[in-house]
Nucleic acid binder design. Structure first.
Length: 154
DNA sequence: GCCAACGTTGGC
DNA sequence: GCCAACGTTGGC
């Protein structure tokens, strides 16, 4: 088996939070409607990959905990459901367009590792999430950055 | 709530 | 296939 890879998934906690995932234990990561993020989900994200759960659009923003991929990509049903917030009229069973993976709760950090912390620590230089203008909701993370964040969060 | 920076759409 | 207009993201 290939070693697990590392990712950062963004979510607005008012929509979906680490606490919600902790209660649910496992959940589909649905609603991704950006092609670059979709490609990561569909092609790159593999079983047992580890995910930094990032809370965006809150004060302070930051990484709240960890999740693990427990199911590789499959079509995002919401895209084909007129009643879904994520409905896309161009998607169909034949051509689903959008994909999602399932993640399970691993842990909530004992404290939020904030965005400003990441920005002020030279060890995180070059990390996508702190780069200006990068708003991709699914990002690859290096092993080094992943491990350092885990250290800061526990 | 503002707005910069980005992604997508659609007319041509 | 260009690019202006529009919509969205997300930190502040």
């Amino acid at each position: 088996m290939k070693p697990p890879r590392y990712w950062l998934f963004k979510s607005e906690p008012s929509v979906f939070s680490i606490d919600r995932l902790a209660k649910m234990k496992k959940a589909p990561w649905d609603g991704v409607r950006n092609y670059q993020a979709r490609n990561f989900m569909r092609d790159e994200i593999k079983l047992n990959d580890l995910v930094l759960f990032y809370h965006s659009s809150v004060q302070p923003a930051g990484i709240a905990g960890l999740a693990r991929v427990v199911k590789e990509s499959y079509p995002d049903a919401g895209a084909q459901d007129k009643n879904s917030d994520f409905y896309d009229p161009k998607a169909s069973a034949k051509r689903p367009i959008w994909f999602m993976v399932d993640v399970e709760f691993v842990k909530k950090f004992s404290r939020l590792v904030t965005l400003s912390e990441l920005k002020s620590d030279p060890a995180f230089k070059g990390m996508m999430v702190i780069r200006k203008g990068v708003r991709l909701s699914i990002q690859p993370v290096s092993k080094e950055h992943f491990e350092r964040i885990c250290g800061l969060g526990s």
